[in-house]
């Protein structure tokens, strides 16, 4: 998929660049954007590492597992027949905690671990189990409390209040996750009867 996005964008920009007479700018962009990417990356990396460190302390002190027990009542509503003492639930709650803090990159390995555990616990063959669908939708919609990356970039570009969008992010995130989950649960149920 990405090979097409990447390839087509570059080919189109060469064609458009020639036809709009802006090929000199395209040429500059080709040479400069890599450097800008490194700059942007270094800027973001600091903030990401701070959260990585804080998350690790939270994990070691047992705070994450406390948070996951808070998450349990909600989990009971959306996951059917899940073993709440099993590996899958632990990975799921750590993944949710990482997502809440806006740590997409930390959430991914935990999500993969959860999918593996779900595969075992739900005895799936080649078709996704209901819990797998619910969990994946939960992650694609992402429940975010603190969008770290976005806030760092807002600050970099001169925002006076980089976090003033938090209420908007919460409502948007909540409604988007809600839509995804309700659809997933309804479709799960509808397709079960057949």
């Amino acid at each position: 998929m990405m090979k097409w996005v990447f390839g087509i964008m570059i080919i189109l920009s060469v064609i458009f660049g020639i036809s709009t007479g802006r090929i000199d700018e395209v040429s500059n962009a080709a040479l400069e954007e890599g450097a800008k990417a490194i700059e942007l990356f270094l800027y973001l990396l600091g903030g990401m590492c701070v959260w990585g460190g804080i998350m690790r302390i939270a994990d070691k002190s047992g705070l994450t597992s406390k948070l996951s027990s808070l998450f349990k009542p909600v989990a009971k509503l959306i996951f059917k027949n899940l073993d709440f003492n099993g590996k899958a639930f632990k990975a799921i709650s750590m993944n949710v905690a990482a997502n809440l803090l806006g740590l997409g990159n930390a959430a991914t390995p935990l999500g993969i671990e959860a999918m593996h555990a779900l595969e075992k616990e739900d005895h799936t063959k080649d078709s996704a189990s209901e819990n797998m669908i619910v969990f994946t939708v939960l992650n694609t919609a992402s429940i975010t409390l603190i969008p770290t990356t976005v806030a760092s970039l807002r600050l970099k570009h001169g925002s006076l209040q980089p976090f003033d969008i938090l209420p908007c992010v919460w409502i948007t995130s909540f409604l988007s996750v809600g839509t995804g989950l309700i659809l997933a649960l309804v479709l799960n149920k509808a397709r079960r009867k057949k």
Binding site: F6, I10, A29, A30, E33
Partner: peptide
């Protein structure tokens, strides 16, 4: 991706 997006933007596309 930043290179691709940057070129795409610069071309006016």
């Amino acid at each position: 991706l930043m290179t691709a997006v940057g070129m795409f933007k610069a071309s006016g596309a």
